[in-house]
Design a protein around this nucleic acid. Sequence first.
DNA 1: TCCCGAAGTTCGATTTAAATG
DNA 2: GCATTTAAATCGAACTTCGGG
Lengths: 356, 356
Amino acid sequence: MPRQRATGMVTIRDIARESGFSIGTVSIVLNDAPLARYMSPNTKQHIKEVAQRLGYSPNQFARSLRGSRSHTVGVMVIDVTDPFCTSILRGIESSLYKASYLSNFADAQNDLGRFERYLEMMLERRVEALIVIANWMLVDITLLSDLEKHRIPTVIVARELQADCVSSVLVDNQAGARMAIEHLYELGHRDIAFIRGPKAIGDIELRWNGIRSFARSAHLKLDPKLILEMPPIVDTNHTFEVAQKLTEELIKHKRHFSALMAYDDIAALGAMRALTKAGLRIPDQCSVVGFDDVAPAALASPPLTTIRQPMETMGSAAVEIVTSAIKAGLEKREFSTSHRKLMPELVVRQSTVRPE
Amino acid sequence: MPRQRATGMVTIRDIARESGFSIGTVSIVLNDAPLARYMSPNTKQHIKEVAQRLGYSPNQFARSLRGSRSHTVGVMVIDVTDPFCTSILRGIESSLYKASYLSNFADAQNDLGRFERYLEMMLERRVEALIVIANWMLVDITLLSDLEKHRIPTVIVARELQADCVSSVLVDNQAGARMAIEHLYELGHRDIAFIRGPKAIGDIELRWNGIRSFARSAHLKLDPKLILEMPPIVDTNHTFEVAQKLTEELIKHKRHFSALMAYDDIAALGAMRALTKAGLRIPDQCSVVGFDDVAPAALASPPLTTIRQPMETMGSAAVEIVTSAIKAGLEKREFSTSHRKLMPELVVRQSTVRPE
DNA sequence: TCCCGAAGTTCGATTTAAATG
DNA sequence: GCATTTAAATCGAACTTCGGG
């Protein structure tokens, strides 16, 4: 009785039978293995043709089982809905593609339970590395031990992490914030309001540090009455509304300020809404600066001046780290974790202008 | 010489050796296979303990090779950077998670070459189904034959597709457009400008049809001078600018209109920029309506009235279709492709108001 | 000895048929 | 014969070894 296969897939056996050569020969030819050097061009040509004709596509399960490589990298996004995360994702996928890796994808949806379950699933599938695109969600440390145990190279993008067994890629938040306030200062603004981000998030605190350090060096006084504090824990879905509320209060109290700087773009857009609703014209009556350069920033009216995080580059950097770690692992070399800090960039658009 | 393993993973063999039972027994116990019914509770207990202690995690490659199931679904996004696509993606991932599938992810980046290469990679990895999240990019028909050949259930989300071997999920574009214009009409608008989408995209033409059919039924005259046509092929990255330009021209020609309706949110935001720059107040001097309800729509000032596509639901529907198709395949039942059309919803925000 | 190709082993888990007390 | 357990075949590809000309 002829072999019966459940799947309609054509295997190396079929190629062998059809071409009249043995399985081994076919394997050698199709993989261009060293031994293929000694094979007659006719044989090679013929086998390749048959493979092409039958639409042969090697079974990765078999291959992976044998070689214990999956050619797959796990990519965990804390929130796919966040444009910041997706820009990084774009960079990651782009680089993975060039390196011929495919990704196992997971959207943690800001939920720690999901995060852990997905981690298990990725481990089961033997991903060769893991890239986590963070946002505000605090990533638990158990993650680290799990991965360390299995010797899977891991990178976290967009989050400062003290742990030493996980690599990281992030922007220089402090420098970025400094660039933003410096921009306002050079335009001539002295009465600047701030929306200060949630203190629970280390990265965002760094932005505040950048502001303070510039203020000190420029002898600029920061008026505490102009500093709006976001609650320590904010669901990112509410950033906009909370920022809007804070700004509305500020306006209601008739504080004077000629510019406003927010810890991220969404908060800046929330502030813009409050200003617009109050009848204030941007930028003539109030300049606004954000941080991130997320897509909606450029779509606002007026378009938002902001600090751009090189999101695609961050994604690519993460891939570079894991691919070299994988290579090192294959060659049994040691590979130490790396922590890359990239420079942001000031993008001047129409929401900032010299004060009247 | 004892067995030497490259990976540090513990296998079923280790459990067998450590527990003193055979490989088969261990497998039966750990999988709760039918035969496990006849096994002594002591044996089961013991084996499970050993597995637990050694931290056994079955090798999915081996499992998949044997069972020819990957428990993986391919998800191809034409553009991850598009917030419309990511909302659908959220729905897909959410449902896949519930069904215990993991996804192989690919971002085609609006590039047909990539699309095809990714298709190959997914085939190699034996995804059990494929979900494509479309946008404007025209998906080639070779895709279909490829998948049909391999009997992999496929769904396209957000695109009308004539082919019968691929399922589809999309919104009722015609009804949606009708809801939008009806909203303006009921507010009292009679001089309505339109930004009409690229004609090359069938779905978007349907929106225009919806408008025309309503106009006919309500005896509303559509002034050709108020109809702005997008060029037939627009890179989505330029939708905003092109829409802005068109609107600026309209304003320059001093045409009178009290409302403007765009074929999607990004175009609507482009129009809003043109209006704002011209000093026109929204909505007092001009109401604006979009389509999609993509994130930036709610963040604009004023927030945009629009037609919401149930994006997450669309993603879930796609997963439902493929999971039942997979189930049918396993049970060797026939499963016909389905084409689901979902209803959009009018979301009234502050960009529309009764005309002065 | 050189070249080409065949045969058999391995990877880890599942499952069937068979063997043990 | 029955209740338990196990050896052996299988999945598909890759690599090592071996043999014929």
